[in-house]
Design a protein around this nucleic acid. Structure first.
Lengths: 233, 233
DNA sequence: TCGCATAATATGTAGCTACTTATTCTGTCA
DNA sequence: TGACAGAATAAGTAGCTACATATTATGCGA
């Protein structure tokens, strides 16, 4: 049998991708319609559709009804960012995970926190400051505010044993999540929490989640010096 | 007609998602097989398959052949990060884009740069330092190394007019891209380029691209103070 | 009861048809 | 020439069948 087996849609995708890489189709060019390309590469339109859809999702192509498929003129670097539970991340680098609750209070949230949660009226929220450790050393310091109205069980939970990070992620799926990554200089509390010099540059990840319109939690995770946020395509 | 039109696969996806949100299916739970759920929600298995595939891609569910579909016990926050051409980004915030070439040289690359490009042997590379401006103020300073072997035209290009960022992104599609985000303290050159205080915390985005195994370029983009990298799901 | 071959099963993939929808082209009429 | 209705087009979606594949369950023999 020299005849090829059926083409897998990933092969078709890679074949089209290769044509963009090798210059057969250049930035801005229009590709043949799915049906013709499918005939040319020996697959069905459904398979081509899947391949094209994937290339369109990944930012290489642009597709418009009736307009056809074009190589994006302004390509974007589109990466997938996976942020696991901190415990998993620490274990993933081969370190022993540790956790320490530093502060817990039920009190009025500052304006800035209400903004992040898109709340108008002043409100009492649960504030939790905690430290994640890798092999005993500070790894990530998190400063979290939780809405007890959305997460009823949280006020009765013993957060000295399990982290709010873990409990929330396991028990409270969200429908919407905002993420922001910034660099900030370590202030005195951050420096003491992370055992670094005041003024050190630290990566901060702000995450806010909602279930429908109801805010769940907003957290600023400040990572130890040298932390790298990685993705690969 | 009270009968519904055909269900769109996104509706089916959202219906299943809603069941996870409202606790019908909890973390770790096994879902009914596609066929049964499809019957229950009134769609075909293909539609259910699409919906499930999407939920699996987004990190909410885990699917295994024969094993069935489960709600992920360790959910991940999975975000999509789009990094456009700097010009587009600046224009996107409503500012006037500007560009300035600061330095250009063809010389031996330091060890660290070769590592990023996964090159073993010493090699001469094109180094380009440039500044992207928003409304005349420094926005992103990039320190780039390009492989002329992979990108033949680059040595003859006048980089004082158009940025290497733009030219490369438009003319050199890549098959692989590594991304890393870190925080660093402004050293003297960075501070002078970005008009900020030495020691300020800055966000750095390192990007390295290859076409197959051939390295294209590696670039460190240092963003102005206060820069936020955003995603939303 | 242990090990292994085999069966059962749920998802993954390919291909087909039929229809929908967004967009662009075109031709006609004022 | 310009506006607009309608035709044409290419991708999007839904549903079907058939088969592939990975993994778990089962049952039989030693």
């Amino acid at each position: 049998m020299t005849a090829r087996l059926r083409h897998r849609w990933t092969d078709i995708r890679d074949a089209v991708h290769a044509r963009v890489l090798n210059g057969t189709y250049r930035a801005g060019d229009k590709l043949p319609r799915d049906e013709d390309l499918a005939a040319e590469l020996g697959c069905s339109r459904s398979t081509m559709q899947r391949a094209m859809q994937d290339l369109s999702d990944s930012g290489l192509l642009e597709r418009r009804r009736r307009g056809g498929t074009h190589v994006r003129a302004d390509p974007v670097t589109r990466a997938r960012l996976d942020i696991p539970i901190v415990r998993r991340e620490v274990e993933g680098i081969g370190a022993v995970y540790g956790y320490r609750l530093r502060h817990r209070a039920y009190r009025n949230a500052p304006r800035e926190v209400l903004n992040r949660l898109r709340l108008e009226a002043p409100r009492k929220l649960l504030r939790v400051e905690a430290l994640h450790l890798a092999d005993g050393a500070p790894y990530i310091a998190e400063d979290r505010w939780v809405c007890p109205e959305t997460v009823p069980g949280i006020l009765d939970l013993d957060l000295s044993e399990q982290s709010a990070n873990e409990w929330l992620v396991r028990n409270t799926p969200y429908s919407r999540c905002d993420l922001a990554v910034t660099a900030l200089q370590a202030d005195a509390p951050a420096a003491s929490a992370l055992h670094c010099a005041p003024g050190a540059a630290l990566l901060a990840i702000d995450r806010t989640t909602w279930i429908d319109a109801a805010p769940i939690t907003t957290v600023r995770s400040i990572c130890r010096p040298g932390y790298r946020l990685l993705t690969s395509i």
